[in-house]
């Protein structure tokens, strides 16, 4: 509940600052001012170009590893109560993960030219 209130107030703070600014600031646009910045020359070609496939690989790896990190949180919290059993189980989990990690490393998924 306080979290929701905080989110609302934070959003209102950002929007409010913008609106307050909107009451005072100048607005004198002309075509050259509205041109996207490209070091002073007129923009060449389409700005949303094709980009390296590496970014997709990183995104997929992120999904795998972040979910795995989230799996570890509940395990870490109850570690005290389960002890050795949980630890061995997590060792097996990390081992499985490690195989995938080494595979990705050998496939040069982390390499960037």
């Amino acid at each position: 509940m306080p979290v929701v209130l905080f989110l609302l107030i934070a959003a209102a703070f950002g929007l409010g600052a913008l609106m307050m600014g909107g009451l005072f600031r100048l607005r004198r646009p002309y075509p050259e001012k509205l041109m996207p910045y490209e070091s002073g020359i007129d923009p060449v070609g389409e700005p949303r170009q094709r980009f390296s496939v590496r970014f997709y690989v990183i995104a997929m790896l992120f999904v795998v590893f972040d979910v795995e990190a989230v799996f570890m949180y509940p395990w870490a919290v109850v570690f005290d109560r389960i002890g050795l059993y949980a630890f061995v189980e997590m060792l097996i989990f990390i081992f499985v993960l490690l195989v995938g990690y080494l595979y990705a490393w050998k496939k040069e998924a982390f390499r960037w030219e």
């Binding site: 996207p36 910045y37 923009p43 700005p47 970014f55 990183i58 992120f62 972040d66």
Partner: peptide
């Protein structure tokens, strides 16, 4: 709609998630 912003956004995304 600017090349610099687009590249910066991509780089930042990959960096933050890594």
């Amino acid at each position: 709609n600017s090349k610099y912003s687009f590249l910066g956004g991509l780089r930042s995304m990959a960096q933050v998630i890594s």
